[in-house]
Design a protein around this nucleic acid. Sequence first.
DNA 1: TGGGTTATGTTATCTCATAACGGTCGATGT
DNA 2: ACATCGACCGTTATGAGATAACATAACCCA
Lengths: 160, 160
Amino acid sequence: MGSECHHADGAHPGLKGHALTHALGAAEHRCVATQERLTAPRRRVLELLLESDGPQKAYDLIAAFGEHGEPAKPPTVYRALEFLERLGFAHRIESLNAYVPCRIDGGEHRAAFLICDCCGAAQEFEPDFTAQLAAAEAAGYQVSTITLEARGRCSACRAG
Amino acid sequence: MGSECHHADGAHPGLKGHALTHALGAAEHRCVATQERLTAPRRRVLELLLESDGPQKAYDLIAAFGEHGEPAKPPTVYRALEFLERLGFAHRIESLNAYVPCRIDGGEHRAAFLICDCCGAAQEFEPDFTAQLAAAEAAGYQVSTITLEARGRCSACRAG
DNA sequence: TGGGTTATGTTATCTCATAACGGTCGATGT
DNA sequence: ACATCGACCGTTATGAGATAACATAACCCA
């Protein structure tokens, strides 16, 4: 409670109530539009991600899955995560072995994160990959996906 | 042997003989210069990485560690990898859970990889992170490390 | 209403990585 | 020489992360 680094304070507060309902409804709409099915386990995992304040480990989601404390079986959650990633509703952060809901509207985009080593927050941003894609093309590569993860300290932790 | 994708053909052939000895010697020199110790297990893991044709899993290194087929204990290899990463002799590729020797001369640099989903090759390159670092700074982040991993198909696999 | 496709439930197992502890080695000061 | 300190290593055990395999159920549509 002092002037130390306030872990996760203020970083991506997590959705509740109307905001959560609205986000889930939007996801549902996008699924309908693309003829995909936001089934119960998929919806539940997305809900858990949206409610959370920061990157969630798969086994955190597994533990929190049931409404009354019963955990899910691992494949249930991993399959849901695979679906959510495929549709762009969630991202995996490789360097954390953790998952976050997508914070950027719209469909396809390339993921990039600023990860605070102090408070654990992961801020998604839309990077300009022009230079790297040009380098890849020059090397003869045909790029399908590209991710970037930067580690450091967020402004709150630097100030704290 | 047809015109299919030739898995790993030609990608980072791996060092042998004089080239391998020379690379290990260069590493030794850099360690002496920085007052670090290239101990036997560290040297052995670096040797395995340099000899290899592509990204190596930790447990591949563990299995290949002994000169006569005896595996190493996991901490032996993980500690060596930690050291090699710290000094810039090796990189971890997060999206593969695998390790490669650094292919770029000199000390500190920021790692970036083009990974072929077809043949598994991982080509290291030196990207221009100017745009992303500016975005991070604009968000108030102080970046310490930054990594990029692009997935796609390499030129050989596209041609094959 | 039947047949293909997609998704789920369940069990078991596999891969990846680290905690913890005691012993060894090498440098440094006296 | 030898005490001492820190870095490193060997070993055992366990924790964390992810998937294979197979059976069952739901969906879609001709």
